[in-house]
């Protein structure tokens, strides 16, 4: 068991991550195609994150070693892109667009209802570990704003009343 020490703010603070050997072997397998290819760091992080929905530090170490990139840079890149998370997240990631087109279409009300429904704050994970809610820049589905994206599926033209039914599919 490894304790994740969070650097700044709420990220990773005190959350415990289980990085067993089986998992790290899996990480090694996933990143081996990028061996000594520092230019593929972003792609490698995508692949690693797909295993557990976040990037545990031991996994980032494996990435650093395999791609031959300093750990500091791996961490710098992992904390730059909003799709990556260095702290544990739920099984499903709900992304909500807060950009102007969604804002105009009433995204604030959807956000409010969603957080209420799930009982979490923005950026938080539900106590059952099923959902993590994150804000996102434009999801590119403004034609059906307001929209949310759960993993790779978009739900558009939402009104608050639609939410329970949408969420039920993932529970």
């Amino acid at each position: 068991m490894l304790k994740m020490r969070g650097p700044v703010g709420p990220e990773g603070s005190g959350v415990v991550c289980e990085c067993d050997d089986v998992f790290l072997t899996e990480v090694q397998r996933v990143v081996s195609v990028y061996k000594e290819r520092p230019e593929d760091l972003v792609q490698a992080l995508h692949d690693v994150q797909s295993l557990r929905n976040y990037l545990p530090r031991e996994a980032l170490r494996v990435v650093a070693r395999t791609l031959d990139v300093p750990e500091s840079r791996v961490y710098g890149v992992a904390t730059f892109y909003s799709m990556f998370s260095t702290s544990p997240r739920g099984r499903h990631i709900i992304r909500i667009c807060e950009s102007a087109p969604c804002h105009v279409a009433g995204a604030a009300e959807i956000i409010n209802s969603l957080l209420n429904e799930l009982g979490v704050e923005m950026g938080g994970t539900t106590s059952d570990g099923i959902f993590t809610v994150e804000t996102s820049s434009c999801l590119g589905v403004c034609g059906v704003a307001p929209a949310i994206m759960i993993d790779d599926t978009v739900y558009g033209n939402l009104v608050s009343e639609d939410l329970p039914a949408v969420l039920r599919r993932y529970r």
């Binding site: 650097p7 700044v8 300093p70 500091s72 961490y75 710098g76 730059f80 909003s82």
Partner: peptide, 9 residues
């Protein structure tokens, strides 16, 4: 040595 990097955004 590369101990340091800019982190976050």
């Amino acid at each position: 040595v590369a101990v340091l990097s800019t982190v976050n955004r």
